[in-house]
């Protein structure tokens, strides 16, 4: 007999993990190309705001999703121009992007506080979506959940199976070499950064139109930082980022369940678990030096300037 709480719990975990999947997979592509963008939180929150604002004003979920992605992309464009063309430091620019995004979304969003949005329709295939367990989990989700899975598959295929993906990885590994054989390091990186921004924007959109369909300042509440951690946790592999996001979401939800069942541990210690688990996994995967060198982009965080 399947316990009654199992399916709803899994559904809750899917909701908690989906924004992280979007943001982490996008950031993985940017980092694979050698760019460390610490502004994920800022791009996400702007995406959340834009999606909600457009959704409420137009009533269209599709426009809302597009607006979220576009807003994230524009934020990434600021970052890309600054770091790739004006050679500003990536770490500092990313942090500045977060400050800017949180401020701008709060400034523009004030008029949208207290409003609500209908949310996204869920897939409903008569006969199939009703199958116990499998139905609601695999055939009863909203469009963005499927999109997040598709994004993982697509990015994985792109990065590791296509020539363009190989180029992205090449500029991340050795930009001097890629440049010397005639590829535009800057353009390839800009593309990767913009993709990362659009994905972070989608993650934000998921928050404000599905997860909690409302707008309040700072509603991302640190999820952008978690996504950054997941990228490294996943050693820059989309599938591992996907599982990492579900693991992280799972631990959070199970922690809440444990409390509801009356398990008596200080909630602060339970809340530490995901972070400690990330550290342990990191140590495990980085012990083998050659393995890390295979996955970590060698030029991560380093600016490229085509000198001479």
């Amino acid at each position: 007999m399947i316990p009654e709480w199992l399916v709803p719990t899994i559904l809750t975990i899917i909701t908690a993990a989906t924004p992280l999947v979007f943001a982490a997979v996008g950031e993985a592509v940017a980092e694979k190309s050698g760019v460390l963008n610490l502004g994920v939180e800022g791009m996400m929150v702007i995406g959340a705001f834009a999606a909600f604002a457009v959704g409420v004003s137009s009533g269209s979920a599709i426009l809302a999703i597009l607006a979220g992605a576009a807003a994230g992309l524009l934020m990434a464009l600021i970052f890309g121009v600054l770091t790739l063309y004006l050679m500003s430091n990536q770490v500092a620019t990313g942090l500045a992007l977060t400050i800017f995004g949180l401020g701008l979304s709060a400034l523009l969003g004030y008029g949208f506080v207290g409003k609500t949005f209908g949310g996204l329709p869920k897939l409903d295939i008569p006969g199939i979506s009703e199958i116990p367990v499998i139905g609601p989990i695999f055939f009863g989700q909203d469009f963005l959940v499927y999109l997040s899975v598709a994004a993982v598959i697509g990015v994985n295929w792109f990065l590791f199976k296509t020539r363009s993906g190989m180029l992205v990885r090449a500029v991340g590994e050795n930009h001097e070499a890629a440049h010397s054989i005639g590829y535009s390091v800057t353009l390839i990186r800009l593309g990767a950064v913009l993709f990362g921004g659009a994905m972070a924007g989608l993650g934000g959109a998921y928050l404000s139109i599905v997860y909690t369909p409302l707008w309040v300042e700072n509603m991302t509440a640190g999820r952008g930082w978690i996504a950054l951690a997941l990228v490294v946790f996943a050693s820059w592999r989309p599938w591992r980022a996907f599982f990492g996001a579900y693991l992280f979401g799972g631990i959070t939800i199970i922690q809440l369940h444990a409390q509801g069942l009356g398990i008596d541990i200080a909630s602060q210690f339970l809340s530490m678990l995901p972070y400690l688990a990330t550290i342990v996994v990191l140590v495990l995967i980085s012990r083998d030096t050659t393995k890390v060198q295979l996955s970590a982009p060698a030029c991560l965080g380093k600016n490229f300037h085509a000198s001479g």
């Binding site: 709803p8 909690t212 809440l256 509801g260």
Partner: peptide
């Protein structure tokens, strides 16, 4: 307990958990 005064996502998760229980 969600250890926060304000985190819409986590508050929603907690509410869902309670309903599931």
């Amino acid at each position: 307990w969600v250890s926060s005064w304000f985190d819409p996502g986590k508050e929603a998760d907690a509410a869902k958990t309670l309903i599931d229980q």
